[in-house]
Amino acid sequence: MQNSQIHAANSAPLAHEEHPSYLRHHFNSTEQQADAAGFAMWLFLLTEVMFFGGLFTAYLVYRNWYYPAFVSGSHQLNVVWGTTNTAVLILSSFTMAMGVWCAQTRRRRGLVLCLALTFFLGLVFLGIKTVEYREKIEKHHVPGFHYSLQSFLDPQSDPEVYKEYHDKALVPDMARHTELYFSLYFLMTGMHALHMIIGIGILGFMILRARAGAYTAGHETFVVNFGLYWHFIDIIWIYLFALLYLISRH
């Protein structure tokens, strides 16, 4: 029995009035296309949340076990750099949000400016991160690479940190667990930085396209979704800052 056309009578009106060039063939409307892309982006962010979730779990377990080591380890991080970086990233989130607004309201120059600022602030963040990493390398605080316990067994040998926090020496058994703290520090900030680098790469691409007016003619989905990604990175950092830098500063 051939009944392939049984729906012919009551089928929906097929085509919509206008068909912009960016409407892909399998969608019925640009609305549906934008909705689908946005939702997909959110789901992607869920996977990111769970990916970082594994790291946060590890952090919490070891922080509970080796609290003194984590405190001493965190005193090795520079709060000024950390706070500055937090502010930089928040600012970049703001410029990104403004970029989305510019795209939605079809302001081409505004969009290019916002994206460029975001790009720049992203680089500033990574620059500061590099300075911080360099410091750790110099002090042999990189796990697995001639890791040194000196700052923790004999805090006074590390006068810069000592004069601020007056940490007591840790017993060797606790001191060695600072290595775990730094493993997690590098893992979490490194994974975060990797996301930043990818984001900055995409930003560069977007700036070029935005100058050609690609996002200010009604098809701003890409900018909106990239914005979600960028804000997500910001959120991760907000937590990393609280957990890694601010364990206890008194």
Binding site: L45, L46, V49, M50, G53, G54, F56, T57, L60, V61, N64
Partner: peptide, 14 residues
């Protein structure tokens, strides 16, 4: 849903 699953991972492990 994301926050919920994240919390399950952390709380149940802990």
């Amino acid at each position: 849903a994301g926050v919920f699953t994240f919390m399950i991972l952390i709380s149940m492990t802990l």
